[in-house]
Design a protein around this nucleic acid. Structure first.
Lengths: 191, 191
DNA sequence: CAGTTATAGTTGCTCAAGCAGTCGTTGGGC
DNA sequence: GCCCAACGACTGCTTGAGCAACTATAACTG
């Protein structure tokens, strides 16, 4: 669904305010629609594949960000910062993932307030099982859809939009971005 | 937050599997990161502006899709199809918006199972208050960030990705897309 | 060193959303 | 005309997430 007729609307005029009835053709609206739909479509594909491996998008992002960090670990707060989850959100994801054996908590030696979330061997294994398929999905539905120049142009445009609109990601390192894959939804509320 | 250091990780090797430690540089990952972060950034900006007018992203999408439909109304099911909300989700959003006076339900004359969600005058007014600012946001954070050719290239790329990845939107009409603005999150689960 | 303030993480509460089940309605096959 | 499958909307239940309050620790200030 979601296809359907998607409204072959005859663009009727209304007594209220006829601006409203025409405004929807605005190229700006179309542009946003494209970006958002591309995102939604990719999310859907990715989620399906991740689910095959028993991971939600958020979990995948969490485990990914941990795995790429030194020692396969990150303090809860830093994890929150990277995942665009709130700290309480992180507490709970880590709860679930710890329960599932993918992660463990480890006390931070120099700061007794902090604790690390650490990927377990089992978590690494899960990630290794999941990643190749994930990359393949990206290739199949995204990067592989365009020839190199078109892709470069697309990424270039995206980068500029990202740099403008994304309140943070720009700050820390310049091309940090890799794999917001999960964030996506939540991100909205916080920045 | 979410900036922070975003990990200036020295890309340590681990005994588990060194693939994992390098894989994160993969350009495919970066590509997805850009798209998702651009989306997240724009969502955040848009949400902030919508909130000023007392609308959530979902509500904005709902009212927008209704307003652009003949008679400013749509059957609940069709609305669900267009918004990438489940039908029960639509029931509830419409509940809330009806409570807030933005929408009304109207019985469908020829099919007693169906009912229409209709935008009220107050709802139209709210939309009219909200839209100009919204368009301005799009301009400011998205389309205005790129010169015309770059924008065209970006949109072209997005369209191809969208057409490939978005399970539906392609079906009904070909450029239906306008304003998934809200969807974005949910979409994932359904397609 | 004492007292204050800031930080890290967790927990209670609320809310939005989906799924699955329900009820009424419709339409097709006989 | 009767029966049964399909459909449209709604409701109960569960889940995931954020906010705000709370606790313990750390850091600062005098």
């Amino acid at each position: 669904m979601s296809n359907y007729n998607c409204n072959n609307i005859p663009r009727v005029k209304h007594w209220y305010d006829e601006r409203v009835t025409n405004v929807f053709d605005d190229p700006r609206i179309t542009a946003v629609g494209l970006l958002f739909e591309a995102h939604a479509g990719l999310s859907a594909r990715f989620n399906a594949q991740l689910e095959e491996h028993g991971l939600s998008a958020v979990e995948f992002e969490v485990i990914t960000r941990l795995a790429r960090s030194p020692g396969n670990q990150l303090r809860m707060t830093d994890l929150a910062a990277q995942t665009s989850l709130s700290t309480s959100g992180v507490t709970r994801v880590v709860d679930r993932m710890e329960r599932d054996g993918l992660l463990t908590r480890r006390a931070c030696p120099n700061d007794r307030r902090s604790s690390y979330a650490v990927v377990t061997a089992s978590g690494m294994q899960r990630l290794n099982e999941t990643l190749p398929g994930h990359l393949q999905m990206i290739e199949q539905w995204f990067t592989g859809q365009l020839d190199p120049e078109a892709l470069a142009a697309l990424l270039d445009g995206l980068r500029r939009v990202r740099d403008a609109a994304h309140p943070c990601a720009t700050a820390g390192s310049d091309d940090v971005s890799p794999e917001q894959v999960a964030a996506t939804d939540n991100a909205s509320r916080r920045h």
